[in-house]
Design a protein around this nucleic acid. Structure first.
Lengths: 214, 214
DNA sequence: TTAAAAGTTAAACGTCCGTTTAACTTCCTG
DNA sequence: CAGGAAGTTAAACGGACGTTTAACTTTTAA
């Protein structure tokens, strides 16, 4: 964390360090002086590059959500059975979460912000995700099952389930004895697939086994 | 929020107001002066009753987790099939989350705190929950399925899934048009049951329909 | 080569932070 | 009724907060 990253530009050093600190201490709990020191930049550079502390948070959230939406579009908006597309989305989303654990934590834990500006900002992204899920997942699913589950319900469920491993990791490391190991990410993904997809199989009466693509 | 609660004792007013404010602005984002004003008490009373700001957070977390553990013990540690016990736990836990939405948000969002003192405090509770899940759910489940899923994996998954509705509520209210309504809590519970329990049914080859107990 | 642009710096701005103090009032108990 | 405990108050403590300023250096481009 404190180690110099002399090759990267100051703006990127601020960004990367902020991601780690916001995830660890929370947005409100992170001071700009600590951030400047850890990123090895002058305090004033933060406001110079990002306008304000909140502007920095916005860019971090944008960066994370843009990648998340891209995966949803790539995996869900294409040909294939619902089962195939949904399992592809889960596999890639979990993999994405794994590589962006800090950003994921910020996205989750900084959710209930009272700040109208940030809430509006996040809603714009969430609305896009909900639209994709509604059209590509909920609509065909509800047509077959006869139920009426909206994307604003199934979306949070799916995201929460996929994020649970990374959300509770810092706690679980203390819970587990140092001897026992956590399940690896691929196993974790397979568990999620086995939880979410049998529901579809059961409704569709279509038999298929969900192997992770290599 | 600002309305006076003249009948309750100052100590309780501090507690109840803090739960709302910590959930809304986060722990670090809430100032004791704002809390004192909203709770209609003198600033010094907070440290008088709770020792420190962190002491107040601890009591809030204790209060929430004690109730959560109580439900786990009551519903999981008793006779009955795994299916019956697990569905009972889910039904009561979701109901509990619904009545303690603010505390739930604090429990979730204040998780990645770097503070060693709080982390240790939470780990004590999480360890109890993991022990119950390990013995009552994972052990019989793994014996039947031949898999080896630890409680430190399935616990966070279950909690995250049940919490998703309340975690993303403030965002989803902005996403939904004001016309459409969210699913009610009972429907939400049934969706979770239909996601989590078919996995068991499939493995156990036991047919049963999961009606919510009234 | 030179002037504008971009990057970087130390210092200070006013504000809010969590906590403590000491004096005061209220309440309970012997 | 006396006296001590519990509750309550206003005020102040030093420090950290996000942001701004103006001066300085480096880079860019005409």
């Amino acid at each position: 964390m404190n180690s110099k990253l002399p090759d990267t530009a100051p703006k990127d050093r601020i960004f990367n360090t902020a991601v780690k600190l916001f995830a660890r201490h929370g947005f409100a709990g992170t001071g700009l002086r600590e951030l400047a020191t850890k990123a090895d930049v002058n305090l004033a550079m933060i406001n110079y590059f990002y306008g304000s502390k909140k502007g920095l948070l916005k860019e971090i959230l944008d960066d994370f959500f843009a990648g998340y939406i891209a995966i949803a579009k790539q995996e869900l908006v294409r040909t294939g059975t619902l089962h195939e597309r949904l399992s592809g989305f889960i596999i890639h989303a979990v993999r994405y979460f794994d590589t962006r654990q800090h950003s994921l934590l910020i996205f989750i834990t900084e959710l209930p912000l009272d700040d109208q500006e940030i809430i509006e900002h996040k809603s714009t992204w969430a609305r896009q995700m909900a639209a994709i899920l509604e059209k590509e997942v909920c609509l065909p699913l509800n047509k077959e099952t006869g139920r009426n589950i909206p994307a604003t319900c199934i979306g949070p469920m799916l995201t929460s389930l996929m994020a649970s491993r990374f959300l509770f990791t810092p706690l679980m490391e203390h819970v587990r004895g140092s001897s026992t190991n956590p399940v690896d990410v691929e196993t974790y993904t397979n568990i999620i697939l086995s939880i979410f997809l049998p529901t579809l199989e059961k409704e569709n009466e279509r038999s298929s086994h969900h192997g992770m693509k290599q």
